[in-house]
């Protein structure tokens, strides 16, 4: 699959899932926590995906359950991208002690396995959505900062950057106007990778019981709640699994496709 096709396919997947998640609550035939059918009831005309372990309509919960994972994954990834990129550029531009301190902090953070770090914080301080977003972004920041620093190191010695410096432009203008545009491609690819990981991590947190609290509809939580009945009523698990997978594959394809297109890999190959 060519890079541009990967990109289009990825974006199509992302948009489809986002559309379902955003418009879903308005389309749901039942309230997501209403007890409307038999426990683990099979699919029927009134309930195309059957009922879950409490007798709630799975289709209604699928429609209502995607918003949290989408806004939280995007928020965590964008926050990590912003802070990480600024830190990385600042380290590469300033050099010296600033660089050493930033690299040291990122090294320390990278020593923690990301999921363990998030579980530790969430189990100690609670599972408010903003805290989860903040912690996931903290787990992602070191990788972005390292990437931004590495790329900036090469750019900062370019003549046009030195010229800007000689002309007395303020440092923030140099960072934002001269350096940042040249970092856009690798950072956007990194954003796609982070989105994929954020989806996996947030779904995992919900599955482990540290994400969105019941009775809220949430795709990760749905998998956990209904897994004991996987062999009895598989749709209560399969539907959220497929949507999470579709969203994760979409972000992955988009990131890879964008990277390949920008690097003109397909043209070079042939």
């Amino acid at each position: 699959m060519s890079g541009s096709r990967q990109l289009r396919t990825g974006i199509a997947f992302i948009l489809a899932v986002m559309l379902l998640a955003l418009a879903g609550p308005a389309l749901a035939p039942h309230a997501p926590d209403a007890l409307v059918g038999p426990t683990y009831g099979a699919p029927s005309s009134g309930a195309p995906l059957g009922y879950d372990y409490l007798g709630r309509d799975v289709w209604s919960r699928v429609l209502a359950g995607g918003q949290s994972i989408i806004w939280m994954s995007f928020s965590a990834s964008l926050l990590a991208l912003t802070i990480g990129a600024l830190l990385g550029m600042a380290a590469a531009y300033a050099r010296g002690r600033v660089d050493q301190v930033i690299v040291w902090i990122t090294d320390v953070l990278m020593a923690f396995p990301d999921l363990i770090l998030v579980l530790l914080v969430v189990s100690m301080l609670g599972r408010e959505p903003w805290l989860i977003v903040l912690t996931v972004s903290v787990a992602f920041i070191p990788a972005v900062a390292r990437l931004a620093r590495g790329v900036t190191m090469g750019i900062v010695q370019q003549e046009y950057v030195e010229a800007a410096w000689m002309m007395g432009y303020p440092w923030h203008r140099i960072l934002l106007r001269e350096l940042l545009p040249n970092l856009a491609t690798p950072l956007l690819v990194q954003l796609g990778i982070m989105l994929t990981w954020a989806i996996a991590m947030l779904s995992g947190l919900s599955f482990l019981g540290y994400g969105v609290a019941p009775p809220a509809a949430d795709w990760g939580l749905m998998i956990n709640e209904n897994r004991a009945g996987l062999l009895v009523q598989p749709w209560a698990v399969l539907a959220p699994v497929l949507l999470i997978a579709l969203f994760a594959i979409g972000t992955n394809l988009a990131a890879e496709g964008y990277g390949r297109s920008k690097a003109r890999i397909d043209e070079k190959q042939g």
Partner: peptide, 10 residues
């Protein structure tokens, strides 16, 4: 943290 697509797919 090793954020590569290959490890994720693996």
């Amino acid at each position: 943290m090793d954020l590569t697509r290959r490890t994720l797919i693996g």
